[in-house]
Computed example of a mutant assay.
Amino acid sequence: MENQFEFIAIEGVIGVGKTSLAKLLTKRRDARLVLEEFDENPFLPKFYNDRERYAFPTQMSFLASRFKQQQQMLSKDLFQQLTISDYIFEKDRIFARLNLDDDELALYDSIFNIMTGISAKPDLVIYLQSNVDRLMENIRQRDRDYERHISRSYLQELSDAYNHFFHHYNKSPLMIINTSEIDFVSNEKHLDYIEEQIFNEPIRGNTHIHIIPD
């Protein structure tokens, strides 16, 4: 059975491999790729050095960038083919809730609540989970300058926030894949299995948890 999707979004904590999976599936399915433009956020390196001071400008810069992309994704010609993205717009508030103080969050929410109502809705969301040890190792291996200051405690906070968010998520069908013990970048069988679950398995209900077999 072939699931006919127009828009798939892949989500997960920093270092889990969402961008890598989006790129691999895009190539296999001849899809259109939409990637989060985090490298264009001028505040991000400063945020990892001084989280409290730069949280608000970092968050607002991401919000503006992501909303601009959402507007482009809603253009009438975009969904003539499958589109795969490495984020969903709603995830922006996970970071806001984690990093902003009460006054900043109130101001942020006044803008976010307007934007989220007119953002693109995925036909399927894939949430990649991983343990913090694996996330730390992935971040170490890709060795981005501004990510060297990410602490284990921050990753744990973020992982807990993501798990809480997706435990309650019901806006789109949701597939959860635990990636702690798999390598879909280097092991083609793992990627084959993920692709099979996404495109050839019927969706029953809102949440599917698929663990790659040995």
Rank of each mutant, 00 (worst) to 15 (best):
S180V: 04
N138Y: 01
Y154K: 05
L155R: 09
F165Y: 05
F184S: 00
S180M: 07
S159R: 05
S180K: 04
R144N: 09
R140N: 08
L155A: 15
I182D: 04
H164F: 12
E181R: 14
S153Q: 11
E188Y: 15
N178P: 04
H167E: 13
N163P: 04
M175P: 01
F165I: 10
R140M: 15
I139C: 07
I176R: 03
F166E: 05
N170E: 09
E181Q: 10
T179W: 03
R148M: 07
S153D: 08
Q156W: 00
E147L: 08
Y169R: 10
S159L: 07
H168E: 10
V185D: 03
Q156M: 13
Y154P: 02
E147Q: 09
R148C: 11
S159I: 08
S159A: 13
I150W: 02
E181D: 09
P173G: 01
Y146D: 04
E181F: 14
H164L: 14
Q156A: 11
Q141N: 15
E147D: 09
Q156P: 04
P173M: 08
S151R: 15
I182E: 01
N178A: 10
H164T: 10
F165T: 07
S159T: 12
M175F: 03
S153T: 08
L174G: 00
I182S: 06
V185C: 05
N163R: 15
I176K: 02
I176G: 02
S159P: 04
P173N: 06
Y154L: 06
P173H: 03
D183E: 11
S180L: 09
H149M: 15
I139P: 01
E157V: 14
N163D: 07
R152P: 04
S172T: 08
F165A: 05
I177V: 05
D183W: 02
H149Q: 12
A161P: 00
R148G: 07
D183K: 06
S153F: 06
N163E: 06
I176H: 03
Y162S: 06
H149D: 10
T179I: 02
S151F: 03
I177Q: 01
H149K: 10
D183M: 05
N138S: 04
T179D: 03
R144F: 09
S180C: 08
I150A: 01
L155F: 14
M175H: 06
Y162Q: 08
I150L: 03
N178L: 07
D143Q: 12
P173F: 02
R142S: 15
R140E: 13
